[in-house]
Amino acid sequence: QVLVIRIKIPNSGAVDWTVHSGPQLLFRDVLDVIGQVLPEATTTAFEYEDEDGDRITVRSDEEMKAMLSYYYSTVMEQQVNGQLIEPLQIFPRAC
């Protein structure tokens, strides 16, 4: 299952990153890619938005798994409803 992660860049749009092994993705892998997209920032975590629009911070593989399972459940709903699949949007955080 292909996963598209949209890395939101403060004040300048976003970069889409296509991942072919989504469920095996590790927290460190995401930080590495964010580091390539935002080389001047030191990113130690990132956030995503849940169904209520609240930002949830991801700082570990466990939290990463929770984010992915949340995302895959929303994708299934979108597929069932015949909607366009939205990329998983993440917001890098420099701490």
Rank of each mutant, 00 (worst) to 15 (best):
L25G: 04
M67L: 03
Y72A: 08
P92S: 04
R55V: 03
G53Y: 02
V19H: 08
L88W: 02
Q78W: 08
Y70V: 08
S12A: 14
T43Y: 11
C95N: 15
V15D: 02
D54H: 14
P10W: 03
Y70N: 11
N81R: 11
Y48W: 09
L25E: 03
T43V: 13
R93F: 07
H20T: 10
K65I: 05
P10H: 05
I9R: 13
S12M: 13
I56E: 03
I7H: 01
T44Y: 06
T18P: 08
V2Y: 11
A41P: 12
R55W: 04
P87A: 04
L31N: 02
L84W: 08
A41V: 13
P10F: 04
F27W: 03
Q78A: 13
V30K: 00
A14R: 04
L68H: 02
S73V: 05
S12E: 15
L68S: 01
N11M: 09
Q78P: 10
Q36M: 11
V15Q: 06
T42P: 06
G35Y: 05
V4L: 12
F91L: 02
V4I: 15
S60T: 12
M67K: 02
N81D: 15
Q79C: 08
Y70R: 11
L25P: 11
Y70D: 08
E40V: 04
H20C: 06
L26D: 09
E49K: 07
N81C: 15
I34F: 08
L3E: 02
V58A: 00
T18D: 04
D16P: 00
E62R: 12
V2L: 08
R93I: 14
Q89S: 13
S21F: 07
G82K: 10
I34Q: 01
G53Q: 04
N81K: 11
E51K: 14
Y70P: 00
L88S: 01
G35K: 08
F46N: 01
P39E: 03
S21W: 05
F27E: 04
D16R: 03
Q1M: 13
I85Q: 15
P92F: 00
E51H: 12
A94S: 10
H20K: 15
V37C: 07
T74G: 07
C95M: 06
Q83G: 11
D29W: 03
Y70H: 11
I9M: 08
A45H: 15
P92Q: 02
H20R: 14
W17R: 15
A41W: 08
R93A: 13
T42L: 09
V15I: 14
L88K: 01
K65Y: 03
K8I: 14
K65E: 08
P39A: 04
S21V: 10
E47R: 04
M67P: 04
R93T: 10
L31G: 04
I9P: 14
Q36L: 05
T18C: 03
V58H: 03
E86H: 09
V80P: 11
W17N: 00
Q79H: 10
P87D: 00
E63S: 06
P92V: 04
S60A: 04
V15G: 02
Y72V: 07
Q79K: 13
I9F: 08
D50V: 12
R55M: 09
A41I: 15
L68R: 01
Q36D: 06
F27I: 05
A66C: 13
L68N: 01
A94G: 10
I90A: 02
L26E: 12
L84G: 14
I34G: 02
I5L: 14
S12P: 07
V19A: 06
F91H: 06
A66S: 12
L3S: 02
E77V: 10
V75N: 12
F27V: 03
E47L: 04
D32V: 03
A45D: 12
F27H: 05
I90D: 02
C95I: 09
V19Y: 11
A94H: 10
Y72F: 10
W17M: 09
S21M: 06
M67H: 00
D32G: 13
D52E: 10
Y48V: 00
L31P: 03
G53N: 04
D16Q: 07
H20I: 02
C95V: 14
D32E: 11
I85G: 07
T42D: 15
D32Q: 07
E62D: 10
L25W: 01
M64L: 13
F27Y: 07
D29E: 15
L38G: 05
Y70L: 08
G35A: 12
A45G: 09
L25M: 05
P39G: 08
F46H: 00
S21A: 10
T18H: 07
C95W: 08
V15P: 01
V2Q: 14
P87S: 03
Y72E: 10
M67V: 01
V15R: 05
G82E: 09
E86I: 01
Q89P: 04
V30T: 01
G22L: 05
G53I: 00
V15N: 01
A45N: 03
G82P: 09
L31V: 08
Q36C: 06
V75R: 13
D32M: 10
V33P: 04
L31K: 05
I5H: 02
H20N: 08
D50Y: 11
I85N: 07
P10L: 02
E63R: 04
R59C: 05
E47G: 02
H20F: 08
V4T: 15
G22D: 07
P10V: 03
N81E: 09
V75A: 12
D52P: 01
P39C: 03
I34S: 03
E62K: 10
A14S: 14
E63I: 00
T43K: 04
F46W: 03
I5K: 00
S60W: 00
V80H: 11
E62M: 08
Y71E: 02
S12T: 14
I7W: 03
V37E: 05
G82L: 05
E63N: 06
V2M: 11
T44D: 14
Y72R: 11
T42C: 11
F27T: 05
I5T: 01
V19I: 11
G35Q: 15
A94L: 09
D54R: 12
G82N: 12
T43M: 07
K8L: 06
V2E: 14
F46E: 02
T74I: 09
A41D: 10
A45I: 04
V33Y: 12
G22A: 12
Q1N: 15
E49D: 09
V4Y: 14
D61L: 00
I7P: 01
R55Q: 02
W17A: 12
R28T: 14
H20V: 06
V4H: 14
G22T: 05
Y70F: 15
L88T: 01
V2I: 08
Y71R: 02
R55A: 02
Q89G: 04
E47F: 03
N81V: 12
S73T: 12
E62P: 09
V30N: 00
I5G: 00
I34H: 00
E62V: 13
R55T: 03
A66Y: 09
I85A: 09
V33L: 11
Y71W: 04
Y71C: 02
Q79V: 07
D52C: 14
V80K: 13
V30W: 05
R28G: 13
L25V: 08
R59L: 04
S60N: 15
C95L: 14
F91I: 06
V19K: 00
Q1S: 15
L38S: 10
G22W: 11
D16T: 06
Q1V: 10
A94C: 13
D29C: 01
L26H: 13
H20Y: 05
K8V: 15
G22V: 11
F91Y: 14
I9V: 14
I90N: 00
Q89N: 14
E62Y: 08
F46G: 00
P92K: 01
I85C: 13
A41K: 13
D54L: 10
T57W: 08
V37N: 05
P87R: 00
G13S: 04
L25C: 11
Q83N: 11
Q89D: 06
L3Q: 03
M64Y: 04
E51N: 12
G22M: 07
Q89E: 14
E77M: 13
S21C: 06
L3K: 02
G35R: 09
Q1L: 06
V33I: 11
V2F: 05
E49M: 04
D16C: 07
C95K: 07
H20W: 05
